[in-house]
Design a protein around this nucleic acid. Structure first.
Lengths: 219, 219
DNA sequence: ATTTAGTTTTACATATTGTCAAATTAAAAA
DNA sequence: TTTTTAATTTGACAATATGTAAAACTAAAT
């Protein structure tokens, strides 16, 4: 019953050029997935429309990816790869703590801005589907880890975990998206995030920045 | 052809007690919708499971609400109503600007905290479905309007629209949810939001809070 | 020329939404 | 109490969408 049996033996076969074509199909499908996800939304994107726009059969989409969820996960992985997430390493190795924070904020804000509509959909899927949500949350936890290192590096008073949570929230896609929703362009939004991040990390919680609770004493 | 025709005339009929039962069914369906949306997510919530758990027929769910989207919109309206959104009026009529800001932040943070998981799902639906997204965005625009009034009331330097956008993002559900995700409880998260809001509204953009760009000069 | 393996075609099973009409039932009106 | 009304149920149906399976087809490798 070994593979060398006369009956079962198969001539060796390298996919070669066929692999390229498969990769092209995969790429075309992911491109179509991105377009349709952005323009039509999640429920309107179907395996059929995906196949039609990418020039293959619906069955081929299933062969190459398996399920609709797998297509979206592949798309998610793709933008994270060529979207510049490898710049994180460069950010985390800055010489000074402030430069580290600055690059940290810039890297994420630029990534959010570059894929805003798509990420809104993908994160939305994570919000409505617990299973997919775990994938998103895993990435958020990695950002939390990086944020914790930034906070530790900067030092200062206050609880590290608490400040890291705040920094993570400030650098979340959702916060950036909310900022950009109201006519704040990428540089301006990035500046706001960076400004707030510095304020969070410099002082613990300065509630005395302005009159604390002026509820009784009118101005 | 008037209603008084012998053929077409109908005996007057008040629904009375039947209306109560319809309301109970409606309430039971919305309760089931909330539970299933939170526990199973959007796609796992079906008209069938909804009907089963609320003790009516699938057809009745359709009779009472129309479509699945309509059920969720009704649920969205419900939590907004009895969820305490009427407290907004009280917040906007505070005597001092600072009290107004404080109540503004507190009202929203408390609302987000009281319906966190449910709102994550509902906002997620808005993110994946452009049509439903418009409903969410309409509410965000109302918050932006209120934020603009708060910002104007507080005054100070800087662009009102810009600061209002920042305040709106800080008081967004998504930002609160991101904060609360990492072990920050409601009071702490509210304090963070309020603190950041004060900082945003007090100074325009104080980039000189810390050494500006210490990229070349080491510490 | 033969073999291999991806693609297509075709068919099928399942699940879900949404609609429709007749039978049923509980409440209102007489 | 009897009749009438309207909501609920029951049963059926159409339309989509996902996912699987197998045979025919085809392009590439041998």
């Amino acid at each position: 019953m070994t593979p060398q049996n006369l009956e079962d033996s198969k001539r060796p076969y390298e996919l070669g050029k066929r692999l390229e074509q498969m990769d092209q199909s995969r790429a075309a499908i992911l491109r179509a997935a991105r377009e349709q996800l952005e323009s039509r939304g999640y429920t309107q994107l179907t395996m059929s429309t995906l196949a039609a726009e990418s020039g293959v059969t619906r069955q081929t989409v299933h062969n190459l990816f398996g399920t609709k969820a797998a297509v979206l996960e592949a798309l998610f992985d793709l933008i994270a790869l060529d979207g510049g997430m490898e710049k994180m390493r460069e950010a985390m190795t800055q010489p000074t703590a402030q430069a580290m924070l600055e690059r940290f904020v810039e890297v994420f804000c630029h990534f959010w801005a570059s894929n805003r509509l798509l990420l809104r959909r993908i994160h939305g899927i994570g919000a409505i589907d617990p299973e997919f949500g775990a994938v998103i949350e895993a990435r958020n936890q990695r950002r939390l880890g990086a944020a914790t290192r930034v906070v530790s590096r900067i030092g200062g008073p206050g609880d590290v975990a608490h400040k890291a949570a705040a920094l993570t929230a400030l650098t979340s896609f959702e916060f950036f998206d909310a900022l950009a929703q109201n006519s704040v362009d990428e540089p301006a939004a990035t500046a706001v995030v960076l400004d707030l991040a510095r304020k969070v990390l410099s002082n613990p919680l300065q509630e005395t920045n302005l009159p604390p609770h002026p509820s009784k004493s009118g101005k």
